[in-house]
């Protein structure tokens, strides 16, 4: 005390040292345990979904549920194939559209842009990532669906309509393509951020060595940086795909929600998350209906969990 008094809350603690150390010991004992709370929550979610989905898994074989093409809950038919293909179509289109611009943008911001440009672009991308899904959905409804309907259908389908991929089988713009475009815009900031972070982990020696032997900057990127970060790029894509896979609200606003297996970019689709969002909470009197929907939720949980786990294990190799 006296002149050595420490002016802080800690300094005013007049308890004996033993009490302070006991407090420290208690915190020590509990610290590892409480960090498992999020995992325990996930366990609860998984168990609840498994228990509630169990009745339908006992009634029908899993193969029949996943690959059945008829969805008529009132008649006891729970074929999820149209929804699974709908999700796969929309997710694939979104990822294919998002990946090339995302990689190029990330490389440009990291390797070419001046610090000033970078300082402007990064916050804008953060804002893009913070916009709620429903706002992307509104944008999709106002801009993307009409664009697909009045520009892409006549343009692409008119020229390439003989290919099944571009065939126009319905008159509206509510389509796989509209959902894919909205998803692409939503996952772009995520993919850019991940690739940008990985590019920062590349040792500068690699760049300098390549430039020193006379490579141009693009040759350095193409032959040195890209091979080095390739696993990270794959992880970024998997992460984006997993985000797109589970996206609900924005997609359901623009894909039309018709339970039919899509065969063309301009067909409607009915992805799995939209199936839950549109039907859960009502018509619970139909037997097994709610078990079927919770099985869909379980499928989403498992697929996204595995995707994320793979992506994150790859990314761990870059960050220490």
């Amino acid at each position: 005390m006296g002149i050595f008094e420490i002016r802080s809350d800690a300094g005013r603690d007049t308890r004996p040292a033993s009490a302070r150390h006991r407090q420290d010991a208690i915190a020590q004992r509990w610290s590892l345990r409480i960090t498992f709370i999020p995992l325990i929550v996930l366990g609860f979610v998984a168990i609840a979904l498994i228990v509630r989905a169990w009745p339908i898994l006992q009634t029908y074989p899993l193969i029949a549920l996943l690959f059945g093409t008829v969805w008529k809950p009132s008649a006891g038919q729970f074929g999820l194939w149209p929804f699974i293909t709908g999700t796969l179509w929309v997710t694939s289109v979104g990822v294919i559209l998002a990946v090339p611009p995302s990689i190029l943008t990330a490389i440009y911001i990291s390797e070419y842009a001046q610090t000033r440009t970078r300082l402007i672009i990064k916050p804008i991308l953060d804002v893009l990532a913070a916009i709620p899904p429903v706002v992307y959905g509104v944008w999709g409804l106002l801009a993307v669906v009409p664009f697909v309907e009045s520009v892409l259908v006549p343009g692409l389908s008119g020229a390439l309509g003989f290919l099944p991929l571009f065939a126009s089988n319905q008159p509206t713009g509510f389509s796989v393509l509209a959902g894919g475009i909205v998803l692409a815009v939503m996952i772009t900031p995520l993919i850019i951020a991940v690739i940008y972070e990985i590019l920062h982990t590349v040792p500068n020696d690699l760049r300098q060595a390549s430039l020193a032997v006379g490579a141009t900057r693009w040759e350095t990127i193409w032959r040195v940086l890209l091979p080095y970060i390739m696993p990270g790029i794959i992880a970024a894509i998997v992460l984006g795909a997993s985000r797109a896979f589970g996206e609900t609200i924005a997609v359901l606003m623009v894909v039309g929600n018709v339970p039919k297996v899509p065969t063309s970019l301009f067909d409607t689709a009915y992805p799995l998350p939209a199936l839950i969002a549109n039907n859960y909470g009502e018509m619970m009197s139909i037997p097994l209906y709610d078990a079927a929907l919770l099985m869909v939720a379980l499928v989403l949980l498992v697929v996204v969990f595995i995707f994320n786990l793979i992506a994150m294990m790859i990314l761990r190799r870059f960050v220490r």
């Binding site: 979610v45 589970g246 609900t248 859960y280 939720a297 989403l300």
Partner: peptide, 11 residues
């Protein structure tokens, strides 16, 4: 982080 919110909603 990436678990879709619809899963939590259904849960």
């Amino acid at each position: 982080w990436g678990i879709p919110s619809i899963v939590y909603g259904a849960f």
